[in-house]
Write a protein that binds this DNA or RNA. Structure first.
Lengths: 207, 207
DNA sequence: GCTAGCTTGTGAAGGAATTCACAAGCCCCC
DNA sequence: GGGGGCTTGTGAATTCCTTCACAAGCTAGC
């Protein structure tokens, strides 16, 4: 398959969100123009994005809302349930464990891991906090596909190395540092410090 | 000034982080090659990024660590202290209020706003939770430059409209929806659902 | 069944960002 | 003080992404 740009995947995600909204409202069709307006892009961009994966619309009419959202869920791999482990039961880890958006979209949080003995054994919204030393054996038996790193920067690379070693291929990183992983492991970073600095730059460099 | 790509600004942020690390270690110079290796890019990219803003290095030698980090802080607008308000004292808002990275980098959180009367009047790590109705008058007297939206998707556009109306020009959005703002307002989104879907896509579409 | 009016899908054009490649310049050592 | 070895800064080339523009195709109405 042709390489798909990350920006395209992001937009597919956005389109899917609107389609779900439309589904709830019971709308049956939608045009690329309408999706573009909501998503803050152009209709040509919407059509081009979709064209990488096939041809989903009807000329003169637009896209069937249920068909397109099914197709997008398929493309994005949201038909299956993904198993997720969260590393770190601090503020961010806890907020994530409680975030309902995960379950809703098919991301099933198996457990949260931490090294702090005071936290181990407790639960966050019904999700068990386990001792970090158990990570390897648990992964071997439960086979999570995705790990979320929610610990301070210092230990993060080390934890990533462990995660890579036990065969997890997808990582969402909240630690405010740049992580290095082999090319077959996908790492996405969420870094608010960086986003804030982007805002700072924008405020500073207005023409 | 020539328009600077968002990707360039992101990388500058990353370079700055490494420079600060080097400063602590007392290293005096660094090459574009070294910065590139750590930041996961190429040395040509590093030099090109910097070249938009001036010429900071010495041929044959590299960049002076303190000089370059001062220059980057200047470019990113981190010399001044930015005033920030957080909207929403839920899980994410609370985690943000307690996040030390903010203060460290010169982002001063003035207050957290919420509509829930049980929360109003309390404090999060010394930061006051105020009633949402006070937003307009407080902004008029305290002049925050940046707002962080940390509420569920439903009310977010409405809150953004209020924020825009009272003259704030930079917004960091954690609500999982696409917000629309006038072009003179910079909105950055942090959307973990989208990042997770990116991982799902990557896992699903390996060659 | 035919026409008018839309909207898709897609090559081609255009624009942006990244990488290449090398002259220019600096430092150190002899 | 001159040469060797590095490393920067930057036009040119390339690659990647977005926008344009239009033929193809569908629907609805007469």
């Amino acid at each position: 398959m042709k390489r798909i740009a990350e920006s395209t995947v992001r937009r597919l995600s956005i389109y899917l969100r609107f389609l779900e909204e439309f589904e709830e409202k019971g709308l049956s069709t939608v045009s690329s123009e309408e999706l573009a307006r909501r998503g803050g892009t152009t209709s040509a961009q919407v059509r081009k994005d979709l064209s990488f994966f096939g041809s989903f619309g009807k000329r003169g009419l637009g896209y069937s809302v249920p068909e397109l959202s099914t197709a997008l869920r398929e493309i994005l791999g949201l038909k299956k349930e993904w198993r997720v482990v969260i590393i770190g039961a601090g503020k961010i880890g806890a907020a994530l464990a409680q975030y309902r958006g995960f379950r809703q979209r098919g991301f099933n949080i198996l457990a949260v891991y931490d090294t702090n003995p005071d936290k181990v054994g407790r639960a966050l919204e019904g999700i068990e906090i386990r001792d970090m030393t158990r990570l390897e054996q648990d992964v071997a038996s439960e086979h999570p596909e995705i790990a979320v790193i929610a610990i301070p920067g210092e230990g993060a690379q080390e934890v990533l190395d462990r995660i890579v070693k036990i065969g997890i291929k997808a990582v969402l990183n909240f630690a405010p540092i740049q992580l290095h992983a082999p090319p077959d492991v996908t790492v996405k970073a969420v870094n608010m410090a960086m986003e804030l600095e982007g805002l700072s730059f924008a405020l500073t460099n207005r023409e």
